[in-house]
């Protein structure tokens, strides 16, 4: 009897301690303005050795252009709208594997952003549906729910509101994947969106009109993101999809390496009235017609393999 009581007491104590730990943990990062420090005493403190390790630890983030940023860059460079360049929504049923769903979530997200920036109402609605299908297929819960689709329908003539909704859905997908240790999948989504942007941009350029062409400058600028993209994919060595996509990116890098970008030193100059800083620097780039055609051909090849 006494032994049973003792055991019950121990279990009760353990449960009580665990409950305390949960409540303490759940409070982290949610303190309101004005609260003092020291709330985390119950979760324990770090010894000197652990603290020293932390002092040398670094989290590394690699940020690629999101599908929305990619579409903005294309439009900002003076591109025109061409629906034929987008991946048809009728293709959604083809994507069965997690890799194809992730790639085409990125691809459809770029197409969605591209359509919405050009005020293409019906295409915007069609492509949010296609992106939702891919997100649902990847079990990304609530990234694009029915409410999001309804909001988009209600705001279909308000471009700023639509862009906000798209930005929100991208953040939901990205945060869900990262929080669930699916960093590799999150990277594949971004690469899909980036390749789609590169495909649209290169398709809109006449190969004989490369000089003084803003869109060509934007395409060449992508060289600056390649090592970030490679580092991002290499940070998920256990993810087979990310490693397969990495080979495509490396193939593109071989071509981008044939493009020359000369950059001078950057100087930061702040405007005291607006508090906006301008990073002043001189830059020049050189891309030959042959290299551009090679790049365009490779992008078509990779993109075709993603959407087929």
């Amino acid at each position: 009897m006494n032994r049973k009581l003792l055991l019950s007491g121990r279990i009760f104590l353990l449960l009580f301690l665990m409950l305390g730990l949960i409540l303490t943990g759940c409070n982290r990062g949610t303190k309101t303005e004005g609260e003092g420090s020291g709330d985390f005493e119950a979760s324990g403190t770090l010894d000197t050795g652990s603290q020293e390790q932390l002092n040398t630890a670094k989290r590394i983030f690699y940020s690629l252009p999101s599908p929305l940023e990619t579409a903005m860059l294309i439009k900002n460079a003076g591109a025109r709208y061409n629906e034929e360049l987008m991946n048809p929504v009728s293709n959604t049923s083809k994507y069965i594997t997690s890799k194809s769903k992730a790639l085409n979530l990125g691809i459809y997200s770029t197409d969605l952003s591209y359509a919405s920036l050009f005020d293409q109402s019906q295409a915007t609605l069609d492509y949010i549906g296609a992106a939702k299908e891919m997100a649902d297929g990847l079990n990304i819960l609530d990234a694009i729910d029915e409410e999001t689709v309804n909001q988009l329908e209600e705001q279909i003539n308000n471009r700023d509101a639509i862009i906000d909704i798209i930005s929100e859905t991208l953040m939901n997908s990205s945060s869900f994947l990262k929080e669930n240790d699916l960093e590799g999948t999150a990277s594949v989504v971004l690469v899909g969106g980036w390749v789609e942007g590169l495909y649209i941009a290169t398709s809109l350029v006449n190969e004989n009109e490369l000089d003084d062409n803003k869109l060509v400058e934007r395409i060449v600028d992508q060289k600056l993101s390649l090592d970030i993209m490679i580092a991002l994919l290499e940070s998920s060595p256990e993810d087979q999809d990310a490693q397969a996509v990495l080979e495509d990116v490396k193939a593109l890098k071989i071509i981008f390496d044939k493009i020359t970008i000369d950059q001078g030193e950057v100087t930061a100059v702040e405007d005291p009235e607006t508090n906006v800083t301008t990073l002043k620097s001189e830059s020049s780039m050189k891309i030959t017609n042959r290299v551009f055609t090679e790049l365009k051909t490779k992008v078509i090849e990779i993109r075709s393999s993603y959407i087929s």
């Binding site: 932390l54 670094k58 983030f61 999101s66 940023e69 930005s167 953040m171």
Partner: peptide, 21 residues
Amino acid sequence: QHDGNYHAALLIEGEEAELYK
């Protein structure tokens, strides 16, 4: 306009992070 990317982590005092973009 937010670009839709999400970069956030729980950091402890003394910890550092780097982001490339």
